[in-house]
């Protein structure tokens, strides 16, 4: 008789929603809205929520979403590279060992981005309606104020310049982590493309709605 058509789904809805939600926020904050704008800060908090949920899901979610299913193990990653070179194809119920290292790298990177972002912006700024889109997405007076403070700090007393410096250090760390994230995203897409070419389209469609 026919083989069972019902294959186990690898990624559950929470994994998919948090994945694409984070993709959306990164695109929004990298390309669409101004650095430090109100929209940027709100999107950042959205990212924080999605990341926190995904990490909690790693503890209480179904088996394939749990950290236990994809431990960060360089040894297993090396063995997996050996498998690839030898042309062996193993079925993994969760991330493959190389993908697992990527996932932890991305999560670490995102955590640094969120932490430095929150440290710079404080709680989400209150917005009074109606508000024009240009104010929402541009470097608003909030950012200018900070710039002003910087200049003052640099010119003023040692204590204030300390605040300015730590703010600057946060900003640099934020940007460095973001640049590292771009590199990881590039590697991730390259990895998925490679895996799809090696073991079939299922790698590509697994994360899409309805994909298995």
């Amino acid at each position: 008789m026919e083989a069972p058509e019902v294959q186990t789904r690898r990624w559950d809805p929470i994994v998919k929603i948090t994945h694409w939600g984070i993709v959306g926020v990164v695109i929004c904050n990298a390309l669409l809205v101004g650095d430090g704008s109100i929209a940027h800060i709100y999107a950042g908090y959205l990212l924080a929520a999605l990341l926190a949920l995904r990490l909690a899901w790693g503890l209480i979610g179904p088996a394939s979403a749990r950290f236990r299913s994809f431990p960060p193990s360089p040894m297993r990653a090396i063995k997996h590279i050996g498998d690839i070179l030898a042309g062996r194809k193993e079925e993994h119920s969760s991330h493959n060992p190389l993908g697992a290292l990527m996932v932890y790298a991305v999560w670490t990177c995102l955590s640094v981005i969120v932490a430095t972002g929150v440290a710079m912006s404080g709680p989400p700024p209150s917005v009074e309606f109606p508000i024009s889109t240009s104010i929402l997405v541009s470097r608003d007076e909030h950012g200018e104020e900070e710039e002003g403070q910087h200049e003052e700090g640099e010119r003023g007393h040692g204590g204030e310049s300390g605040v300015g410096e730590s703010e600057e250090a946060l900003e640099e760390l934020h940007e460095a982590a973001v640049n590292l994230l771009y590199l990881l995203v590039f590697l991730h897409i390259a990895g998925v493309a490679f895996e799809a070419a090696r073991s079939g389209r299922r790698t590509l469609t697994a994360m899409l709605p309805g994909g298995k």
Partner: peptide, 11 residues
């Protein structure tokens, strides 16, 4: 719904 709750909770 869980995702929306998580977002609401973060803010």
């Amino acid at each position: 719904i869980v995702v929306i709750q998580a977002i609401a909770a973060a803010f």
